[in-house]
Design a protein around this nucleic acid. Sequence first.
DNA 1: CATTAACTGTTTATAGAATACGCAGAACGA
DNA 2: TCGTTCTGCGTATTCTATAAACAGTTAATG
Lengths: 247, 247
Amino acid sequence: MMEAMSSDLIPRLWGKPPAGRRGPKPALSAAQIVEAAYFIADEQGLAAVSMARVAEAVGCSPMALYRHVKNKDELLILLADRLSAELPEPSRDLGWREGLAAWMRAQVDLALSKPWFLDLPLGASLPGPNRLAWLDLGFHYLREVALPADEKLAILGIISQYGLGEARIEVEAARLAENPYASFEQMLVTYADPERFPNLMASMATWQPAESGEVSDSDDPSAFGQRLLMAGIEAHIERHLERDAAE
Amino acid sequence: MMEAMSSDLIPRLWGKPPAGRRGPKPALSAAQIVEAAYFIADEQGLAAVSMARVAEAVGCSPMALYRHVKNKDELLILLADRLSAELPEPSRDLGWREGLAAWMRAQVDLALSKPWFLDLPLGASLPGPNRLAWLDLGFHYLREVALPADEKLAILGIISQYGLGEARIEVEAARLAENPYASFEQMLVTYADPERFPNLMASMATWQPAESGEVSDSDDPSAFGQRLLMAGIEAHIERHLERDAAE
DNA sequence: CATTAACTGTTTATAGAATACGCAGAACGA
DNA sequence: TCGTTCTGCGTATTCTATAAACAGTTAATG
């Protein structure tokens, strides 16, 4: 399950030539294999990515894959970076606020269009070139912000994690919406006990369904959280500037 | 892969009596099965939870499980709620700031002590009773905050998702730290190209490792993000109050 | 050039996974 | 008492990942 690492993972992530000399020229490559896995996942979901199916798609025997990839876990790590190449890149001509918002939103959009993005082991290994490029774009939007590098990195991590969480919510909401048995309201009225969940029930009692036509965030559920995060970041920057000025 | 739902999932989540009349009295129960799965996961990891092993632990044949649980996916959903019962409950006598911080931190702590928490399908289904109780506690901390219920729910969702993200980072950092091949710095110097990642490299060039003895967040990596979120929430609340006062 | 070592893809084989299907007995309603 | 319904089980199927040994290919080495 774990231990998907080998000393060759990193070279493979970066597409290093195998540097091997002797022996027959490889007819396959890791990139080819990952590409095949990518299409299978895209069309039939991540669960459909089995070594046998990938081998069939690439036109070789299942065991041939193991010459180019340590095991399935490693294949999934490579696949994760491959998918990260698909992150839509927003315009670079944006201030840090709009830039970071778009940066975050791009991740959500990718997850919505390819839900298996969220099932991938994104953090199980070091970031590959594609994910690093993504990170670089984040630093680009922060280039004129006066914060130390480690805080910038932390901020990008927070935004990214928040975006992934938001994407999970949206993807799962879409899944549940397809399911007639899974109605949150129905469940609440059937089982939720005011004695057991007093605060929850009290709050829900004041729930007001959004009036139609009202200007709201309903077209982008992440907008609310986005504003919250941006406000926090802004406050942090100001605090930092004051501290600098005081010295 | 999906379709883990049946019309019986929700009753099972809530421990509904089967209400069946005829036939032999069940020697097993879903709760028993979930408990067995819980101990296996706790001792040997989530990957060790197979129907066969759970059956062995519970003392029945593998196929007997299917009388009480639709399939493995459903077992995992039940297991997820079971594990949520283990969330440490912080003191209720806290203001919203400290309360929410502790609320979030509890999730991180659970994930750190039981890393398989993060591998579970937490959102793949409706929240069960234990997760609802957790949500209720969140509303408790917000009870004196003047915000509409939907915004409170959104805030709790954001904090919770952020906490999960933070937990993922910490757990994975711990995993990677065990791995000699996975050095971020090593990878950067070996492969990262200033032409390819200009902003990233420029920022990293100014990196200052924290001076030892300095007061920092290093004992709690989530503190930085926590402050960011709290600042954003506070700003939002103030804005909301002003809006109310203006009417 | 001949040999050898390293590397390729393949074949075969194994162990473990989830779960469909049908049976035997138990408990209750009629 | 009879039959319906429900439980738990045994058997069998299909799919996994991957270990091990093998045969052919190439390049470095003698």
